[in-house]
Amino acid sequence: MAGILVLGAGKLALGDMLFILISFILLTWAVKHFAWGPVTKMMDARSDKITSDLDYADSERASAEKLKKEREDALKNSRAEAIEIVNKAKDNGDEQKKTIVSQAHSEAESVRQKAKSDAEKAKQDAMNEAQNDIANLSLEIASKVISKELNADDQKSLIDSYIKELTVNNETK
């Protein structure tokens, strides 16, 4: 240890400079090692985290918006599709109705036609039958009449009626 001197002024205390430089450098090192390093690292990490969180939020929002748009489009499309389906069904129904009605018409027509022809045929049959019956009946009557004795009066009246008939026929001609 050097001698302790007591001086008011005189020689510059250059040792102070050295001492302060060394203590300042040591202090800087210690602060960096114990406080500055970890804290600034954490601050950087935090700012990175905030930035990435913000970016993440942005991208999430963008994707959510996209999804929403897609959903809206899908909804719009489905509505259009539903309308189309309903229209198609309506058209189909109309067509079907038309065909059914026309089919029914034609069927009814054919039934009517058939009924008409049947009726005609029945009528014809009935007429034929009646004709036969009448023929038979007249034959029977005739035979019965013929079998009865023809007297003069009867003969006369018969001839008269024939003549009358003939004259009527001639007059009308």
Partner: peptide
């Protein structure tokens, strides 16, 4: 008045050195 220490040809002011040391310690 200050106490001085001469060491290795350099003059140290005790008050300055001690105060600087105390400040450095306080900061730390």
């Amino acid at each position: 008045k200050y106490k001085f220490i001469d060491f290795l040809g350099l003059r140290f002011n005790v008050a300055n050195c001690l105060s600087a040391l105390v400040v450095a310690l306080l900061v730390f």
